[in-house]
Amino acid sequence: MKNTNEMEIRFESRSANEGFARVAVASFLTQLNPTVEEVADVKTAVSEAVTNAIIHGYENEIHKVHIRCRIEDNVFTVEVCDKGKGIENVEEAMQPMFTTKPEQDRSGMGFAFMEAFMDSLEVESEPGKGTKVRMKKAIGKGREIWTTRSL
C-alpha cells in the first residue's frame, strides 16, 4: 500500500503570512526526511507562489489563500490556490523576467524559481476566477543508492 498523507491550510493574503506558509509546508514535509537543500527548495517555491497570490492574484486586497499538500510515497505535491483576478496569458507570465509590476521592483523570476526548485510545475488560471499552481518534487532521490552501497 502507498504511504499517503495530506494537509490543507487557508490563511489571509497578508504578506506577514508568507513566512507562516513556508514554515507550515516545510514542517509537513519533514516526515519524508528531506535534505536541508530539499527543504530550502520547497520553501522557496512556496514563497514564490504565495507571493504571487498576494500581490498579483489579490493585488494586496485581503482574501483567502489556500494551500494543499499531499504525500504519495516519496513524491511531495503542493498546490497554492487563490480566487483572485487570474492570469490572462499564463505562457507569457511564466517567461523569466516577465512582470506586470516592474514599478514595485518585482524581478519576474517567480515562476522561473518554482520551475528550477521543483520537479514539475503546472499553472491553471482563468481571468476573474483565480489561479492554481501545482508543484511536485520527489524527495530523497538518489539516497537509496547511497545507503545501499556497501562500505
Partner: peptide, 8 residues
C-alpha cells in the same frame, strides 16, 4: 532565506 523578492 531569500526568494525572488530579494532579487527585485
Amino acid at each position: 532565506f531569500m526568494d525572488s523578492s530579494g532579487i527585485g
